[in-house]
Structure formats: structure tokens, C-alpha cells
Design a protein around this nucleic acid. Structure first.
Ligand SMILES: [Mn+2]
Ligand SMILES: [Mn+2]
Ligand SMILES: [Zn+2]
Ligand SMILES: [Zn+2]
Lengths: 136, 136
DNA sequence: TCCGGATATTAGACAAAGTCCAGATCCGTG
DNA sequence: CACGGATCTGGACTTTGTCTAATATCCGGA
């Protein structure tokens, strides 16, 4: 099962998203690469040949994907949000200098000893980000 | 030892920062409150009585404090950076709805099983953010 | 097929955070 | 006082993201 454009329609439907041409292109950009992309990067990829999708649609669509749980948001860089097609629980390694962002498998990572949450609060997610830089 | 303006000068000097009037005011805003503040909030605090410090100076000064290790940056909200006068290792609890950011003591929290870093990389920091929302 | 409403897309104006620069100001030293 | 380096400043500028009103597309029923 690979991430062809044709398969994107089903993926979108399975997340209760009406598959339009633009949405398929944006999903394809994210899922065929399996990379963390900013809105800007998505915009550039989707419009490589000629301009096909507006900025408003890129932002609207990424927000929709997020709401529907198709992608995840990763906040590591103060200047832009990254969108992550990998929604299974995992962590991130961020290279501060290059801006390169990669996944850390949740497999063996264990976080223990967190204090109880304040009354009436529920966890939405736990983000673990390892910030690294080139040694020198 | 409390965070009076007079004590700020020594704190700045001990971090190799030339204590100017503006820098003392900005340090005082952060350290007397011991809260996470955005540049915008610092700006507002410092200029409550009448305008005393420019936007450029607030941004320059916060960046200087960061470089000198006097404060820490917390990236949790895609729309603004928070500055943290607490530089000892600790984690964060972020209330997504209200935007409220609070500290989690590093005391009993343990993170284990992280994979080895890529060759030639060195850890700059590990950020653990617990995102919570009001139950309902 | 044609119609009408709902849904989706668009250009471009707008907002907010942050950066940059050239000129002014401050301040310690001679 | 004069000089020079460090600091500060207003305001233009950039980037990321939001909003809106107009248009386009889709789709079920007559
Ligand atoms: Mn310190
Ligand atoms: Mn922004
Ligand atoms: Zn990821
Ligand atoms: Zn903190």
C-alpha cells in the first residue's frame, strides 16, 4: 500500500474529509514524502509545475487535516509550524542549526514520574523534543 | 536575596552582560515575576508608566539574555516565543486553550530509552511539553 | 438536463511577530 | 570638552498566518 494520488482519496474519505483535487495534492505531498513540512514547503511542492493551489487553501487544508487527525503539528521552530504525516506516537530530534527535523521512535522511550495533572485537565499530548547541534 | 532592580545589575554582570537601564528593567520584569513572558508582554510591562524602551531593544535584549544563558526560550505556541527566567532543567505544562504555561519540576521525571545521537551531534537540550486541555 | 444550495477555492487585504538599519544617544577615558 | 565604542531608537520591512467577499465546483432532486 503506497501513497499514490489514487490512494489519497480513500485515505481522506476514511478521515471524513471530502477528497478534492487540492486536498489530494496536499495529502500526496505529505504522505508520499513522509517528511515534516511547513505550510510554505507544501505550497511550493504543490505548485511546482504551475500555480494550482492558493495560499488560503493550503492553510485551510492543513488545518482541516489537523482537526481530522490526519496529520500532526510539530512546534519546534519559533518561525514556522511543521506538519507531520506520522500520527503514531513518536518523538522528535531537531537539529538547531540546519533546521532538520526527524522522528524518534517511541518504542523504547519511557517517560516516568510526571506529576498528576491539575484537576479537570486532560492530556492532549506529550511532546518530547531532543534539540541537538553539530559538535565543534 | 530577592530580585530588586539593584540586584539585577549584579546578575547581569555575572552573566557578562553590561547592565544598562533598559536591560535592568527587562531582567526585572522577568525575574521579579518568575513567569514565562513573551517579548510582547515584556514590552508592555517595561513601558507601563510611559514609553521607555523600544521594540528593537526588547528583542535585542531578550536575544542577548538567551545567548548569555540568563534566560531560556520555550517554544510551545506557534505564534510567539516565551522567555523563561528559570534556567535550571525543568519541563513544561501548557494549557492549550488558555495559553497558560507552567513549570514541571524535573525532580522525579525520568526519560529513558532515547536512542544514541547521530554521529558528531551533541544535545543542546531536551524539551518535554505536556499539552493539556480542560476536560469537557 | 437544469436548478439551487452547500461546500470549496481564490486573490488579496490585513494582522502579528520579529528583523534590520542608519542615525541618535550614552558613557567612560584622555 | 572631545572622542569612540557600545547601546538604543523609530520605522521600514519580511514572514507567517488569518480573514473576507466573490467565485467556482459539486451534488441531489425536479
Ligand atoms: Mn544563570
Ligand atoms: Mn507569526
Ligand atoms: Zn514526526
Ligand atoms: Zn519554565
Amino acid at each position: 500500500m503506497d501513497y499514490t494520488r489514487d490512494n489519497m482519496a480513500g485515505l481522506l474519505r476514511s478521515h471524513d474529509i471530502n477528497p478534492t483535487h487540492q486536498r489530494i495534492e496536499i495529502a500526496h505531498a505529505l504522505f508520499s514524502r513522509q517528511e515534516h513540512l511547513s505550510a510554505d514547503q507544501v505550497m511550493a511542492i504543490v505548485n511546482t509545475r504551475h500555480s494550482e493551489t492558493s495560499k488560503a487553501t493550503v492553510y485551510n487544508t492543513l488545518k482541516l487535516f489537523l482537526e481530522k487527525g490526519l496529520v500532526r503539528e510539530v512546534i519546534v521552530d519559533p518561525s514556522k509550524v511543521f506538519y507531520d504525516p506520522n500520527t503514531s506516537p513518536h518523538h522528535h530530534l531537531y537539529e538547531v542549526d540546519s533546521g532538520k527535523l526527524s522522528d524518534i521512535d517511541a518504542g523504547h522511550v519511557q517517560i516516568s514520574g510526571l506529576p498528576p495533572l491539575p484537576e479537570g485537565m486532560v492530556t492532549e499530548g506529550i511532546d518530547l523534543i531532543v534539540r541537538v547541534r553539530r559538535n565543534g
